[in-house]
Amino acid sequence: MISLQPDFCDIEIPEKEHYSIEDYSSSKARWCSGCGAHTILHSVQKLCTDEQLPPEKTVFVSGIGCSSRFPHYMKTYGFHGLHGRAFPVASGIKFRRPDLHVFVITGDGDCCSIGAGHWVHAIRYNMKMVVLLFDNSIYGLTKKQTSPTSPLGTHTNTHPTGSVLPPINPIQSTLGLANVSFVAQTVDWKPAHLNATLKKAYDHPGLAFVRIVQRCPIWMRENYEPTVKDPDAITVLNHENGIVLEENALKKFRHIQEHDPSNLVKAREVAELVKTTTPIGLFYQNKEAIRYDEYGAHNLGVPVEDRINAINSLMDKYAI
């Protein structure tokens, strides 16, 4: 500790800490080998290292599903709660704790089915947090039931002859929600794009919704293999305000489409591309959207005397 102006203030210089990637890794992940979650975990740990997030100030909140085991594999604070309910918990955590870095980990069943109501409202609350939708288009943990994002005709244990309804397009749906402020898509098998997307999401002043197309080698191998192997399957959305890849990385993609992420109407159009290709990149960003976490933090730390005065003034209304 050094003293500047002893009678004015003391400045405590904290020990300088540097966090390495091991500081964010907990027990060995128990996902199946080849599961896309492994690469996402690594990418998230890299983000934490790059940003030097203090592990004690970082919280991963999840629902239930294979993907929702994620917090157990981070050496940060974590909340592995109920199926579909990660959003309200994360919102409650962030509401009065602007100092915490909050991440939401959710699956396609978790977010787009049982938790769909909360998804709609979390987007509207637009609290600063990073939401990672691990979309493998199937219910993994409960063993291959149809998910709301399963492509029409997917053979599952609930629909052995093929699913009968068209899937929800989570990008399109999110772009239709009130107060939406950040929507991006990436895939788990393109680490450079995944890393750049996570960084962009982390920097966003609001709720960053990232759908990660995720491989499930056990239940959905035939769905993903063509996309993973086909160099034509992906279209990169490119823009200086979007997810910017280094030239070398960008060169690896054959299909590049310019898209200005400030244009919501255009973003909704581009989201329709999902039907023919896998678009990756930033669909939409608005840094000015109203943030409910700012409302939540606006009256933190009211001194006890003031609080007592406020209560007494309300009590006066009932005084006789």
């Binding site: 050496k75 940060t76 604070y77 974590g78 909340f79 592995h80």
Partner: peptide
């Protein structure tokens, strides 16, 4: 959360 060294994942 915020307490150094107390990290755990509630489940």
């Amino acid at each position: 959360p915020g307490q150094k060294g107390g990290m755990y994942t509630l489940t």
